[in-house]
């Protein structure tokens, strides 16, 4: 298993380089111009000069190589410097000065390093989208298991109904509906997420909880709907297998049969779905973040796409690609743990 992981990680490097090149070419090919948001009152000659100042005058391959250099060499050196200087984890190491003032990956919208903004956006995305996902998984698994175990019971029917409605009604609608009910009519929760809130007391913690309730609910409902369906169907498949009859015949308790044998064997599709979803957590929930003004990574990406801020889109997309590759590998490793018969050599 270890050699498998090492080999896959090693092979991931060329894969990622290819992915980064494909993303770069795709963004190049996509119609759009960083000047789209500049008012029409700015004359075309000025816009042309602004484009040149963004580096758009340079040929394609130079720009790609520059980005690769900045992302794989300059940015990590900034990160390592920061880790050894300020972070709690590695602060004891001697301070490094790898970063020598070369240009970092700069956003065209803000003219500032992309990674600084990403770091700034991470907390709210992790809090809101991460929690939404975590709750979603935590609700989905028991619902899926019990729905399958008591197939066509009232519980199952209600669960099916809620999860299908939860999935088929889009978040741009449920989000606004919650705001209208709970912010406008009842005034319980704020409709706009305050990203500058610092949690340092009970009151500010409660404030944070209140502003997270609605976005987390919307996301949890959506995620739970999807995952519980896969959990249920996979459990159903396994509950009728011969080994279940054997286990029961052996006199194992119902609990041990269902949670021990059936659940373990049903996890493969569920693990896949959960692992597929984690990179999307980092990608942020574009619509939910917009509706509740969470301004996390999803909002950053969509804003950058609308403004045709190519360095930002390229960097964000590539970070997501990195996570996708890593989590696919994690899923593969988990398959081997769940079902030792699976081998990849």
């Amino acid at each position: 298993m270890l050699t498998f992981i090492i080999r896959r990680l090693f092979l991931a490097i060329p894969t990622l380089l290819v992915i980064s090149l494909i993303i770069f070419l795709l963004l190049e090919l996509a119609p759009g111009d960083p000047m789209a948001q500049v008012p029409l009152t700015v004359p075309p000659e000025v816009k042309e000069k602004m484009r040149l100042a963004l580096g758009l005058g340079e040929p394609l391959h130079i720009r790609y190589i520059k980005w690769v250099w900045q992302f794989f060499v300059v940015e990590p050196s900034v990160l390592i410097d920061w880790l050894t200087r300020e972070s709690a984890l590695f602060g004891w190491l001697p301070d490094t000065t790898l970063y020598d003032g070369q240009l970092r990956v700069l956003s065209w919208q803000t003219r500032s390093p992309v990674m600084d903004i990403v770091v700034q956006r991470l907390p709210q995305t992790m809090w809101v989208v991460g929690m939404g996902y975590l709750f979603g998984v935590m609700i989905a698994l028991p619902i899926g298991i019990y729905s399958a175990y008591r197939q066509y019971s009232i519980f199952d029917q209600v669960g099916t109904f809620i999860s299908m409605v939860g999935f088929s009604v889009p978040t741009f609608f449920t989000g606004v509906l919650l705001i209208v009910i709970f912010s406008v009519e009842l005034g319980w929760f704020p409709s706009i997420y305050d990203t500058t809130l610092v949690v340092n007391s009970w009151d500010s913690f409660m404030m944070q909880v209140r502003q997270m309730v609605m976005p987390v609910t919307v996301l949890a409902l959506f995620n739970a709907a999807q995952i519980s369906r896969f959990m249920r169907s996979s459990m159903l498949d396994n509950l009728t297998q011969d080994y279940v009859r054997t286990a029961r015949a052996k006199g194992l308790s119902e609990r041990a049969v269902v949670l021990g044998h059936v659940l373990r064997n049903s996890m493969i599709p569920v693990v896949t779905v959960i692992a597929l979803g984690v990179p999307q957590v980092f990608g942020g929930a574009i619509i939910t973040e917009q509706v509740f003004k969470v301004n996390g990574l999803g909002q950053l990406l969509i804003g950058a796409i609308e403004a045709n801020d190519l360095p930002m889109v390229q960097t964000l997309t590539f970070i997501f690609a990195l996570l996708i590759v890593v989590f696919n590998l994690i899923a593969d490793v988990l398959y081997g743990i769940i079902d030792p018969r699976i081998r990849y050599d």
């Binding site: 119609p31 759009g32 111009d33 960083p34 000047m35 789209a36 796409i305 609308e306 045709n308």
Partner: peptide, 11 residues
């Protein structure tokens, strides 16, 4: 809007 008002000569 980001395509319409952008001046991308390729679009």
């Amino acid at each position: 809007a980001s395509v319409f008002f952008g001046g991308d000569p390729g679009s």
